[in-house]
């Protein structure tokens, strides 16, 4: 596969390490969220046959974590964003 890196342009997926669902960005607060929320966060994933937002790490590249929007059936990639930007847009900061 080719991932169109937002900074570097098209790069071979071989350079990346896959982590999984980009929902991992939405980590609950460990002091306030409680066990149940964390259980869901750690263990529950959607497994769609279709469009999926997922985290890829450009390990053999510029070390950027990316959020890749990919169709798991066709492998079509319709969006690639820097995970840092996505995290900020979802209210994450310090």
């Amino acid at each position: 596969m080719i991932i169109n890196h937002p900074i570097l342009g098209p790069r071979d997926a071989q350079e990346f390490v896959y982590l999984g669902d980009a929902a991992l960005i939405d980590r609950p607060d460990g002091l306030t969220a409680g066990n149940e929320a964390f259980h869901d966060y750690v263990y529950l994933r959607d497994n769609p046959a279709g469009v999926h937002r997922e985290l890829w790490y450009h390990e053999q590249g510029d070390r950027s974590w990316l959020v890749v929007t990919r169709n798991t059936v066709t492998h079509e990639i319709t969006g690639v964003e820097l995970a840092r930007d996505v995290a900020r847009s979802r209210g994450r900061s310090k």
Partner: peptide, 9 residues
């Protein structure tokens, strides 16, 4: 991952 995805600032 922690630096970019969890605490980006």
């Amino acid at each position: 991952y922690c630096r970019q995805c969890l605490w980006p600032d």
